[in-house]
Design a protein around this nucleic acid. Structure first.
Lengths: 297, 297
DNA sequence: TCAAAACATGAATAAAAATGATATAATTTC
DNA sequence: GAAATTATATCATTTTTATTCATGTTTTGA
């Protein structure tokens, strides 16, 4: 009945990765002959070719491409399962893999992680920030166990809980003309250089909740990866940015940054933590959410 | 490096399914001795027990429960991959697995599927209606390839497209007092027996868009699985229900059913088809969505 | 155009792993 | 106390997997 073995998936992946049978064989600590034989047997068992032999190189058939997809999807899960079992073996509880869909939350997360690690010495924490299929996909695909995100998703299979609220504010240098404003209107940004994280504009609050409704664009839009550099740029008067108020307040004194309310009401934000429903009763996972729900010091 | 093989997962699953090593061995066409040997070796390789030996029975350890979860998640995917490769081998393109999160859409789907099967003779179609982790989970978990649903989800990794619009209407027997109304208000249902599909009430349009906003409940709420029986009940005056207008109109003449608008504006609905982004370029999948987008005859 | 590189194939073989056979002990369940 | 179930051990057998070697083909590119 069963034809497809883990080894087959490893081979498909290795060949695709290294481009040739010989290279793959070396990687897998096998001879070229061995590989050639096993793939032949696999193809016979499946009844379909997996590679097209084009001269001295291999190209995946349609079936092969499909198989590669399966390999890329399942092998990491098997690897991860082994890792986890190894951890169980060592008396550890496991690794809490946290996904982040919220750039500035990283600073907040660090504050949660520290006490958590102390409280759960036998649980490791890993944080991921890039997902091929988005945070939700990563949750469903078992790439992560928790997702920190501003967009909750109330669907069967997942559970989301709000963990903290904050206000998204404009950040300007203390020498900036807007620094003394109580709040600003969208038009007041039309002459400014706006610095943001490298994310689609429609996922940036300052766009979709402030600028876009008013039909305003900033003079320029610069993109920067890291919060620290971003703030350096703002402090040196190169532009303005939008960040959580609590984050700005930490830097205010040392860097000369000023938070300014966006609009008369301000932009209120809420951050959620999501998990798989099936994991709902894992104690060290619940504990993290519990800890995260405490107000930020 | 690699310890966990497919066979191990099969064993864990079989033992959990049949309750004992001996039973599992029979199912797997192995001897009890063989199983006992392999699981012992597995436990040694992992460095952790998978089962607790309690007298003459086995109970999963924590690691074992985790492993069972992995098995239940991954084995179906491997099986499915083999099925699909077998189809490739026979010159077929594959199976289009369609998930439905919209009860009455089934009738609509049948109309799409018929011409589709004619157009794509080498593609099979399978329809699923129950999902452990919801339709979205089933998409991400590769249980289905397309999802027919009233709630689209615009998240990375998934693509949703609207396929048709319709009006959700109340269905009553032609002898019913409300049968001559141009439209009805929520209060007019307070004395009625409401028949619906077995779905949480907050997912029923007639509740969340009509009754609940007005704070009204029907006299009674009956639950029925199949559309046909539901309509029989309505025709015989046992209650009223809410369905798409086009669906009612097909039955109107033969059964003496009358559609009545819900509220002055009526309830407008839209149905979407969702797919994984990675599948976006699969021709027979695109073709289905294309076909579904055509207006219903 | 010729040598090198890459894959295929078949045969013989060696090594490893899995399985089966069998027997026995321990435990629990009824 | 008999039956059922698992553990364990040993040995034989079978199956799987990989290696080696020899040889052939095709393509690539210097």
């Amino acid at each position: 009945m069963a034809i497809l073995e883990r080894a087959h998936l490893e081979i498909v992946r290795a060949v695709a990765q290294h481009g040739s049978l010989t290279a793959a064989a070396k990687k897998l600590h096998l001879t070229q002959s061995a590989l050639s034989h096993t793939i032949k047997k696999l193809e016979q068992a499946l009844g379909t070719d997996v590679w097209l032999r084009e001269g001295r190189s291999l190209r995946l058939t349609q079936a092969g491409q499909y198989l590669l997809g399966v390999a890329n999807r399942l092998l990491p899960q098997l690897d991860q399962a082994e890792d986890r079992l190894r951890q169980y073996a060592q008396g550890e509880r496991g690794t809490l893999r946290i996904g982040m869909e919220c750039h500035p939350c990283y600073q907040w997360l660090l504050k949660i992680v520290a006490p958590y690690l102390a409280q759960w010495p036998d649980v490791d924490v890993d944080v991921k920030q890039k997902f091929q299929f988005g945070g939700i996909g990563a949750l469903f695909g078992y790439e992560i166990d928790l997702l920190v995100t501003p967009d909750p998703l109330y669907k069967p299979g997942l559970i989301f809980e709000p963990v903290f609220d904050y206000e998204q504010v404009l950040v300007v240098s203390k020498h900036h003309p807007l620094a003394t404003s109580k709040y600003i209107n969208p038009e007041q940004l039309s002459g400014e250089v706006l610095i943001t994280y490298p994310v689609k504009t429609d996922r940036l609050d300052i766009y979709n909740q402030f600028l876009m409704p008013a039909g305003i664009s900033p003079k320029r839009h610069k993109v920067i990866e890291t919060t620290d550099i971003m703030l350096q740029m703002v402090a040196s008067g190169r532009g303005v940015t939008a960040l959580p108020r609590w984050l700005v307040e930490e830097y205010t004194s040392e860097m000369g940054l000023v938070p300014v309310r966006l609009g008369q009401q301000g932009i209120a934000k809420q951050i959620f933590i999501g998990a798989r429903e099936t994991d709902a009763n894992i104690d060290y996972l619940k504990a993290f959410v519990e800890l995260a729900r405490q107000p930020v010091s």
